[in-house]
Amino acid sequence: MATHGHSDDGTDFAHPLPVWLLLTVFFALVFLTIITVAQSNLNLGSYDIAVVMLIATMKAALVGAFFMHLAYDKPFNVIVFLSSFVFVALFVIITLSDSKLTSPSFEPKFDEPATGELER
């Protein structure tokens, strides 16, 4: 905004992140990726999707907070970005729940295994 002062050193709005932080975040992300691949070999039943999504969200939070500078950004930008997830949730949850509630009336189509194509 025009009201902002104009400082001479020119770094008033740049926040270079230290290299060690970038590397730490990267190795944390790689570590989480290994964990998520490893856990997929365990059978956690219905918790599976929750665990997978939790790990993915942790990774996303790391990328967002540090690589995308959200931790240092203007609050308004953070709100803008996070509010998009509110609308995504709204959209997905309502559509999904309606589909779930009406699924008993569905009439799914099944077809013969693809081997059936041999007849031609």
Binding site: K74, V80, S84, V92
Partner: peptide, 28 residues
Amino acid sequence: PEQQFDSGKLGIWLFLVTEILFFSGMFC
């Protein structure tokens, strides 16, 4: 320069918002 940077930054964040909603259809 800061006003220019802030404008661009808000612009790109808004663009990312549209991207997220764009992908939301497929996630749904």
